[in-house]
Amino acid sequence: MSATAAPSQAHAIGCSHCEDDAPAPTGARIRGWVTAIAAALVLVACALGFFALFPAWVNPLFIVAAIVGIIFPAQRALQALRRGSLDINALMVIAVAGAVAIGEYEEAAMVVSLFAAAQWLEAQSLERARKAIGRLLDAAPAEVLIRDAAGAGDRRIGIDAVAPGAVMIIRPGEKLALDGIVRSGRSDVNQAPITGESLPVEKAEGDEVFAGTINGHGVLTVAVTRRRADTTLARIVHLVESAQTQRAPVQQFIDRFAAWYTPSVVILAALVVALPVLVFAQP
């Protein structure tokens, strides 16, 4: 799905805020490659150290692994600093820099590789949610064939212009643009995009149909019951987006804890370094 198509489709199904905030790529694939490179470097360095092969390469490999693994945490730490806060990413950057400074290259590479792997898993879950929203955005057409109440024939109009009570004509193989009640006709409708049902459902006069479903062999005349913003499909998109942005109670607690813990640790570490020099004149 192209970047230009996503906002228009979001508008079509009723996801009004998606027009300005379409689901953006999470970069999970790039994170995966970076994490894999860092992990591979760590494994190679550990193997060389264990078998005493090319010992001069071991520490440089650990250093390169630490640099590669810290790329994305450093970006997040910089973003947090711009917001005026210190988060776990900033603490990780400080820890890795400190480990490298005192010569603990293996520890620095190990820790940052595990941390990068955890962030890659998080990006993977967000990527799946983004793709799910993209599939939902593609589920409903942007136009609908409407039967003119004045008898002027059938015409296609934009989905925004369709009000409840209008009569849609759904031809074989077409997707339904809006929710409605079948007024006439009989057909099997594939509701898998909405309900997950594996088999098409027979629809006849008086049955309810949903936006995003696919008509089968017959022609249906459907009276619209909901505007685009109120369709079942629009509500599903909203629920998926809400699930993507919400955090579990444990995550919320960790975020609140980290907001105090991270600055406290940084300040305490600075005091441990500075006090002996300033108060006791020790090197």
Rank of each mutant, 00 (worst) to 15 (best):
R76Q: 12
I146K: 03
Q75M: 14
A123F: 02
L114H: 00
I146D: 02
R82A: 11
N89K: 09
A142W: 00
S125E: 10
L91V: 02
S125I: 11
G98A: 11
R83W: 07
R130C: 07
V93H: 02
L145T: 06
E106G: 08
L114N: 05
D138H: 01
Q119N: 14
R147F: 00
M92N: 06
L91Y: 03
I133K: 02
L81C: 13
R147P: 00
D154P: 01
R128N: 10
G103V: 05
A80Q: 09
I133W: 02
L137E: 01
L114T: 08
R76V: 05
A132L: 04
I133D: 00
V93K: 03
S125W: 01
G103M: 03
A132T: 09
A80L: 06
D138L: 07
A132I: 08
E122N: 08
R82G: 10
L145W: 02
A140V: 02
A90P: 03
A97H: 08
G134I: 06
V144W: 01
R135C: 11
L86I: 14
I146R: 00
E122P: 02
V144F: 00
V112R: 02
S125G: 11
A90C: 14
Q119R: 10
L78K: 06
A149F: 06
P141W: 07
I88M: 15
A97Q: 07
A149K: 10
S113A: 15
G84L: 05
R130H: 08
